[in-house]
Amino acid sequence: MNLTNEEYGKYVKRHALPSPVVKDTVKAFVIGGTICAFGQALQYLYVAVGMDKEIAPVMVSVTLILISVVMTGLGLYDSVARHAGAGTLVPITGFANAVVSPAIDNKAEGLVLGIGVKLFSVAGPVILFGTLSSVVYGIYYYVMKLMGV
């Protein structure tokens, strides 16, 4: 009990069951890879049926978003994600899940302050910081262009 906070923190870190990094990573790789491979197959399909080559990847994302939204609604996404970890977080499906899940959760709080506000609770920061960095990049790109680089 005479441990200082720092000593106790170190002791707890040593004591804690470690996350099974190798197992987690393999699962994330396989499941995340499968989602992307499925996306690629869809993209070939969309192009094959005559979709524009620029539009096809965007429609792939939209399709994956749709699948993720339905799976989240049926309560399946979190059951897969508890195994897949980053494998279902990093693909665009993870973003869609982050949009839908708080919205469903908070519908009892109303359309505007429940669904409307919470829809952006995880997705908001993603859009905010994404837009911010795109503006920073835009300024850089514009200046470089003016200088003729």
Partner: peptide, 18 residues
């Protein structure tokens, strides 16, 4: 190729999380 690269991007995130 999509499988390998997409999987790798996820695996990196998993290592960071863990």
């Amino acid at each position: 190729k999509a499988f390998a690269v997409g999987g790798l991007l996820c695996a990196v995130a998993q290592v960071i999380i863990d």
